[in-house]
Design a protein around this nucleic acid. Structure first.
Lengths: 326, 326
DNA sequence: ATGGGAGCTGTTAGCGATACCATCTTCTGG
DNA sequence: CCAGAAGATGGTATCGCTAACAGCTCCCAT
């Protein structure tokens, strides 16, 4: 920086100003400095800047399994929003979803002086990890959970599940079975609640949900059990991959979809339209969730206080697994 | 840090040593210092440390679309390896895959003083972006490309494609059609080469590859065309999602898999075993690639020089799409 | 003319850590 | 018992940058 200053015939301070508050420098001086910057290919040292300003331009993301479609898409949305605002994203992935690892993940990021942290860990245990946060560190949660002491951005799982369930009932089914996600996952719980609430409101029987683990494999195993029950005619599955397993189990057992059984999934993964049959599902706009979370974090970094909840509306996408072929 | 030193009755220098070279401090002094550290919940300021040491404990990953299964899995592998070695990962995702954006991504990371960069951009244009690297910045590439001036970790696409093709020929097919990935993607090219080389070695006709874009949609469109050709009896598809589209197109056209047509995919996404029929495919160990890439980068950071190439062997997983049902 | 404000640039003092060298103990062996 | 090495600790300078204030120039209103 000293060299740049010398080459431009100004002081280091002026160089600093050109880079941080260009309007405070006379245009011709600014031009000289910028020329020198280019000439010497000078790049400011962010460590030094962080040291003195306390702000790093880096935000941290704590997440669990970034190979799952949902978290990966959310992360991607966050990253894009961050890029547009000249933020960089550091990620801390967790070997397991529980309070202690989440706390450690946040600590790891904090030790790198991130300006804020977004937690993408849609599990009840995440809530625990968000109770005793280091003061002064802005944190935003993605996915929800009740009574979190931090702002939240999430897809409205309850509404999505309710829409899926109502859609199935509207087709004339007596009731709707549910293949749920693993216990204590926020999303899984929300979908169970939305499904149950519609059935109860309509005075329908509420079958016991069958618990899967998000994988196609678990969907297949559960599907085989459901396929044996002749009165199962409508199934709401908590994600598309499990729905894929369910579809295959039904087919193997000779139950036709949608003629004998209607199936709805959740997520709308890009392949859902090419399942056999194409899957009716609930689309989640993960990119939007990521963007909202980033915006909430920016607000927090800027000093905003208080509760904040950004709910993104999911959308029912009707395909052949709940209707007749076109 | 001053406070910790005072509380422990030592100098700041000793506190620093306790944290960085504990063996150089007498055990009792060390214990006093550590007690003080805990008492005050002291955390070293990484910015200050970076400023003086020049090393940050952060590595950068430049990547394109982290919602694709391959890149997401690789990123995950890198992150896990990094966590085990107390590195943090910063990501710079690119809005488009070309030379200029890759250069910009690397710059963005470099300005944050990362210790090294892993580029996950399996596209020919990535090679361009790796030609004129800033000197002194360790860079490792994932996915390959020819004659890169940096170390590379990758799955051996050629071998994987060759195995898939040989498997299909071994079933008695006259030749094998290929649905490829988009032009200029390294992986896509490698698979085309492996496929073509086996056909040529065996003296078989080499049909023109049909070019897709990795999506199930493109697989479906191409599959419809292939399904109309009666002499198409074996198809090697460059990834599982496109294979899913192909399967559906074949079924819609009344061609049975595997009785009329055999299909092999590539990737072994977790759902592949639940396609209809279950998909024979080539499994890539993305986690291992991530780990190898990280190791290469560590070596480079430690000063290792010269060429380095770590090829990970893919594995053919035979399922019903190329065999009779069990 | 001239006081004073606006606008631009420079000077100085850290930010929080470690490198390097100096100093002070504590051993070890003859 | 002492020289000298080895081990433990401290003092000081410095990494590259910006906050805060000081100083200078120029112009305008009185």
């Amino acid at each position: 920086m000293e060299d740049v200053a010398e080459l431009a015939g100004v002081s280091a301070m002026t160089v600093s100003r050109v880079l941080n508050a260009p309007e405070k420098v006379r245009p011709e001086t600014r031009a000289r400095v910028l020329a020198a910057v280019r000439e010497l290919d000078y790049r400011p040292n962010s460590a030094a800047r962080v040291l003195v300003t306390g702000r790093s331009g880096v935000l941290g993301v704590v997440c669990f399994d970034t190979t799952l479609y949902g978290p990966a898409s959310t992360l991607f949305g966050i990253e894009q929003a961050a890029r547009d605002s000249d933020y960089l994203v550091s990620i801390a992935s967790l070997p397991a979803l529980n309070r202690s690892w989440i706390t450690r993940g946040i600590d790891r990021l904090r030790s790198q002086s991130v300006d804020g942290v977004i937690v993408v860990a849609p599990h009840e245990s995440a809530a625990e990890g968000l109770r005793n946060l280091p003061p002064g560190l802005p944190v935003v949660d993605v996915g929800g959970g009740t009574d979190l002491p931090v702002p939240v951005a999430a897809v409205d799982q309850f509404t999505g599940a309710a829409r899926a369930t109502r859609h199935l009932l509207s087709l004339g089914h007596r009731t709707v079975w549910h293949v749920s996600g693993p216990p204590n996952w926020i999303d899984a719980n929300g979908r169970v609640d939305g499904w149950r609430s519609v059935l109860e409101a309509e005075g329908r029987e509420v079958p016991e949900p069958l618990v899967g683990d998000w994988t196609a494999h678990s969907g297949y195993e559960i599907g085989k059990r459901l396929a044996r029950e002749p009165d199962v005619t409508a199934i709401f599955v908590a994600n598309d991959h499990m729905a894929m397993g369910v579809l295959r189990a039904l087919r193997e057992t000779g139950r036709r979809v949608p003629e004998d059984v209607s199936v709805v999934g959740f997520d709308d993964v890009p392949e859902a339209a090419y399942f056999w049959p194409p899957l009716t599902t609930v689309r989640q706009n993960f990119g939007e969730v990521g963007r909202q979370a980033f915006q909430l974090l920016l607000d927090r970094i800027a000093g905003a206080e208080g509760e904040a909840r950004r709910m993104v509306e999911p959308e029912l996408v009707v395909r052949e697994s709940t209707g007749v072929s076109p």
